[in-house]
Design a protein around this nucleic acid. Structure first.
Length: 599
DNA sequence: ACCGCACTA
DNA sequence: GGTAGTGCGGT
């Protein structure tokens, strides 16, 4: 029974005060512990074979094996198809050979000449462009249910098919409600530890990641209050998953643990349609045999560098590496790795706005573009997609505004080059407007070259943000060349000269600040109305300035600020790429050098 | 601010 | 391999 391997993880590398902390009333009632809260509970919830599931929902298929195709490649394989041994790496031919009744769906595409993406019979990479729009919308619906059912939880959308949920606050509320004795600490004894927790009923709450290799439940150590917290999060998570399954038809898998990386890791413990609870006591046993390259942020080059440096593959293998050693080779930031290996991760679940900061439409060209004019065709296709996506986004968020338009083009096998330009605020815009701006960037990019091999074109909005909620939207038909500040000259430049059929313009100089306000509209008749609206808005702005008594120079965009700034905490973040080595005099190993040093 | 790049899924 | 999205550093 105990011949091979360890049955029990070696606990020397862990702090019992960290894994099995005694919790006091003071800690239980504190609202300010944040990532150091001993009762912190995080879930990672992801959709099983998401793109395939979306197509099943769309087609009303429940059980059949199905794959989603992007040109010749499989990009998603549902679980019924996986039973036939089909994987994403397979060729379509091989997949069909394994399962003749396989349902094959090609992802939606924009077809030349069509306004909206659709599912066509014969897709051709030379004339079509993939659209992931349907999946984005389904994703947003799922996210909506999370937010609706968990108003007290932070929800961080981590990708199109997964989200982190911080259950700490809702769990604490329920804990105090269900165990009222905890809500009333003995007077003047706030630093007493809590009474022993009750037994936990795990029925219907998912799998429990085992804490050793025996299946003898009698050997289980006693529960902790953190285990209770996880079980409450598991209840909530289960309800949410059920709701999504019933309302939208998607099955979700979740991992529940004390921090983000462990939640993510335990989500894949068993799939699909399951949830996995990782109690603190099970962390060493779960983590040590794990390939560290499965850990979030260690799946890429950093993980490779670690594996090469120490010639190892599991978390357990790395536990004997000292913090000093790791930091000497990977920089100060290596403390992040050192702690991850010991189950510690203080990164926050950051509630992100449902709006992405950027929108990218891209197209790889099997047949490289050789003449400048061919670029305009694809730019127009990409512009059409961006126009539609921005229009859709504005249906829920009317004042969304992309700050910049960026065009990337890749020449042959070289790295891609890019050009960007400010994208003026416009409530009303069309494909030609975006395409015109894109074309101008294309000209900058290709210069005077007459011959080229462009293998990839990408057009993106960046700095996408919404106006403040209190803002009265500038409704209407006009475009607004300069409602913000005198430093926004580039906005006007962006409009003129860039678009053929330049729209009509009218201007006005503010008596208070001498700023020139300009209105631009497609029709002459609309210019005056537009200018009036801008005047009103500008007046409102002065009003707000007077109230706030703020320095004019610091408030260039009245009531049009982008979303809150990122407040990442340096020390607790994943490794920074450019962290300097501690000892500059020592040459780094080749693998490390390539990771941290440019070129 | 602009651009290139590295990284991630 | 295609289609995304984010953030950092240099200028």
């Amino acid at each position: 029974m105990s011949v091979k391997g360890k049955e029990r993880a070696d606990l020397d590398h862990y702090d019992p005060e960290d894994l099995l902390p005694a919790i006091t009333y003071r800690q239980l009632h504190s609202q300010t512990l944040g990532v150091r809260d001993p009762l912190r509970v995080i879930a990672l919830c992801d959709s099983d074979a998401f793109y395939a599931a979306c197509e099943m929902v769309r087609l009303g298929i429940t059980d059949k094996p199905l794959v989603v195709l992007q040109w010749e490649s499989l990009i998603a394989v549902n679980y019924p198809a996986r039973k036939f041994g089909i994987s994403r790496m397979d060729k379509l031919k091989d997949a069909k050979a394994r399962c003749p009744e396989l349902v094959v769906v090609h992802v939606a595409t924009y077809k030349e000449g069509e306004k909206e993406p659709g599912y066509w019979d014969n897709v051709d990479t030379r004339t079509h462009k993939v659209s992931l729009d349907f999946y984005r919308r389904e994703s947003a619906k799922i996210h909506g249910i999370f937010r609706e059912m968990l108003p007290d939880a932070e929800v961080e959308k981590a990708s199109i098919d997964e989200a982190f949920i911080d259950f700490t606050q809702p769990v604490r509320k329920l804990l105090l409600h269900r165990y009222p004795e905890l809500a009333q600490p003995p007077p003047d004894e706030l630093d007493n530890v809590l009474p022993p927790p009750p037994p936990i009923k795990w029925d219907g709450l998912g799998n429990i990641v085992p804490h050793d290799d025996t299946d003898d439940s009698e050997s289980s150590p006693p529960n902790t209050w953190h285990d209770v917290a996880i079980s409450i999060a598991a209840e909530l998570m289960h309800k949410v998953r059920e709701e999504v399954r019933i309302k939208l038809g998607y099955t979700l898998s979740a991992g529940i643990a004390r921090n983000k990386f462990l939640a993510k890791l335990s989500a894949s413990y068993r799939k699909p349609n399951s949830q996995n609870n990782l109690l603190n006591i099970a962390i060493p046993h779960y983590l040590e045999p794990m390939q560290f390259q499965k850990i979030r942020f260690l799946g890429g080059k950093l993980g490779d560098a670690l594996a090469k440096e120490y010639d190892v593959s599991t978390v357990g293998d790395l536990l004997s590496v000292s913090l000093n050693d790791m930091q000497s080779k990977f920089g100060e930031g290596a403390i992040w790795i050192y702690e991850i290996l010991r189950g510690i991760d203080r990164s926050e679940v950051k509630a992100k706005s449902s709006v992405n900061k950027s929108m990218l439409a891209s197209k790889n060209l099997a047949q490289a573009i050789t003449k400048a004019e061919e670029g305009y065709h694809w730019i127009r296709v990409l512009a059409a997609e961006l126009a539609l996506r921005l229009k859709d986004a504005r249906e829920t968020n009317p004042n969304l505004w992309p700050k910049t338009l960026v065009l990337h083009a890749r020449h042959g096998y070289e790295a891609s080059r890019s050009r960007q330009a400010p994208f003026p605020f416009r409530r009303d815009f069309d494909v030609s407007y975006i395409a015109g701006a894109g074309n101008k960037l294309w000209k900058e990019l290709v210069g005077t070259a007459t011959t080229m091999k462009v293998t990839s074109v990408q057009l993106a909005f960046t700095g996408v943000g919404a106006a403040e909620s209190g803002q009265r939207s500038i409704e209407g038909f006009f475009k607004n060349g300069s409602s913000s500040s005198r430093n926004d000259d580039h906005v006007d430049e962006g409009l003129t000269g860039q678009v053929e059929n330049a729209p009509a313009t009218s201007s006005f100089t503010c008596p208070r600040c001498q700023k020139e306000l300009r209105a631009t509209a497609l029709e002459d008749a609309e210019v005056n109305a537009a200018l009036e609206a801008i005047k009103v808005e500008h007046g409102d702005w002065h009003f707000a300035q007077d109230l706030a008594k703020e320095d004019l120079s610091s408030t260039e965009r009245p009531r049009l600020s982008l979303r809150e700034p990122v407040k990442g905490s340096q020390a607790l973040s994943p490794p920074k790429r450019k962290k300097k080595r501690k000892r500059e005099d020592e040459e780094p190993k080749e693998s490390i050098a390539r990771f941290f040093v440019r070129r």
